[in-house]
Design a binder for these strands. Structure first.
Lengths: 303, 303
DNA sequence: CATGCCCATGCAAAAACCGCATCGGTTCAT
DNA sequence: ATGAACCGATGCGGTTTTTGCATGGGCATG
């Protein structure tokens, strides 16, 4: 007694399928690019491993046994599966398919991300995206640990292990509460907020927006009154609606549709100061990354 | 250049799965009952055949590549499928599972067949039945050509290549039209039909019933008037309902529930003259046959 | 810098496989 | 009835493949 149950091999299965389909050992052997004797032996081996007679063979005719009929179906499935497994694996390795774990900020979910997903559907449908919303800081952390492959985040991204790509720049718009007299103007300038109440970004949770706005105001010598500091755009708009003050938000935030909150373009310098970057570890070995970066470049160029 | 795209083998897959699960070539080799060097080479071979690197190995750590992760899933599926294919084939060969093509007469479909199917559900659930209704003559033909494995048919079955088993004997009942005065009797005798109109079986289409009834009447010296000859029981009952005459049918026909057709037991000698036999080719090699014959014997014994 | 761990590689022995020749059994035509 | 043709199984020698042992070389740890 061996104790080790022997296992069959794919070669034996291929031999069997050929024999079962040809019902003729000679032709089956020819199809397998071998001679008849070794094919006979491969099938004997397979039958021995299974402990089951698969083919009834007289010198005049070859027939499948009932068990052979069942095994033929299974054998074809195994071969198909092996074939497709090889194919799928090669595709993954070639980067034609695969999964990219993508981090994104809430704000980019309103503007850049939808455009990216549309583009993916037509340009790289075999690349799956695992989407994870997180703030820029979390994205940096997740990139380092490998939880995400690519992040869509706010600058600055100064880690040396990252590569980056600027994918979008957005204008600022003013969110004004119902009744604000500035609604009568078609467009605004930063100086329109001098000495006015403004819902601001929190330096901790929304460092990028906070610093950017602070920089813009300082460059023009404008000093608004910061009445509150928040980090999420939709809560800022809620305060605007409550009449606490105005707010400056990326233009994509207009899609949030708050009642009694109206938007007006704001002229700034530069005119699209809200920048979005893609970042990824330079040593990331995800084969789908190259295709995905192509996608990002296309989406960024359409900006 | 070979021109022949090489194929991988199950052994290589088993090696890869072991290595991918252990993430350690030494332990994986031990699990495979071999030493580390040949395992390394099997995986190299697999990678070469696929043209894809599956494992990232430094001297300090082994990691799956993205393609390797995908292939690991596929590899496990292949191994599971191979395992279950062997199991299923062995079960078929052992006769514990499989398909029996079963012919049956319309009449047996009302009595014996339901009992058989019930018994199958509890005693041999892995035996599938392909049911084909046909008259006894067709069944003999189908048994010879192998279209069915077993037939449930009427005697005599005198082919030398067949084995047979008596599985059921049924009583006769009289089917009487509404208003027939014999309905007042609790039970009838054959002599109650002397000189009376009787819907009879056609000698061609229903030879067994025709001959059996003719024999019974002759043995008792009773002579009914045959008003019509049919071969299907339900059409006979339709004529009974129309008042054409009475009919003698197997007791199971009572389950047909024709309006205005009533049944009364009939005493005959022997008391269960409607016999049903199972027949199969003695040289039938269907491995499920033995189990199925056990089932038939059980169902027949319950009669 | 020495040690330990781990995978890759060189090499010889063992095993598996293949092809050739041939056997035994069956079918078909003469 | 007999011989030819066909077909799968088997014996056998040569070749290929695989295995195990010994060892090399890279890398982390202390």
């Amino acid at each position: 007694m061996t104790g080790l149950s022997a296992q069959f091999e794919l070669h034996q299965i291929r031999c069997f399928v050929a024999a079962a389909e040809e019902l003729h050992f000679g032709r089956a052997a020819a199809r397998m690019n071998m001679t008849q004797p070794p094919l006979s032996r491969q099938i004997q081996l397979l039958e021995h491993v299974l402990g089951v007679k698969l083919l009834d063979r007289t010198s005049r005719a070859v027939k499948l046994t009932p068990a052979g009929r069942v095994f033929l179906l299974e054998a074809r499935r195994i071969l198909r599966l092996a074939e497709s497994a090889a194919l799928a694996t090669r595709r993954i390795a070639a980067g034609e398919a695969g999964t990219i774990a993508l981090g994104f900020t809430a704000a980019s979910g309103y503007s850049f991300l939808p455009r990216l997903l549309l583009l993916r559907a037509s340009h790289a449908p075999n690349i799956d995206l695992a989407l994870r919303e997180m703030v820029s800081g979390e994205q940096v952390e997740s990139l380092l640990t490998g939880r995400i492959d690519v992040g869509l985040l706010r600058p600055p991204v100064d880690r040396t292990e990252f590569s980056t790509l600027r994918v979008a720049g957005e204008r600022l718009v003013a969110a004004l509460p119902y009744g604000d007299e500035r609604l009568e103007q078609a467009s605004l300038r930063l100086s329109d907020f001098d000495g006015r109440r403004l819902v601001m970004y929190a330096p901790e949770g929304a460092r990028y927006f906070h610093d950017m706005l602070a920089g813009l105001f300082e460059a023009e010598g404008v000093s608004p009154i910061a009445v509150q500091s928040l980090s999420q755009i939709h809560s800022m708009l809620a305060l605007v609606r409550a009449g606490i003050g105005a707010a400056l938000v990326p233009e994509a935030a207009q899609s949030l549709h708050f009642d009694d909150v109206h938007f007006r373009p704001v002229t700034t310098s530069p005119d699209a100061p809200v920048e979005l970057f893609a970042a990824w570890r330079t040593d990331n070995d995800n084969p789908a990354l190259a295709s995905f970066l192509d996608l990002l470049r296309t989406a960024g160029a359409a900006d």
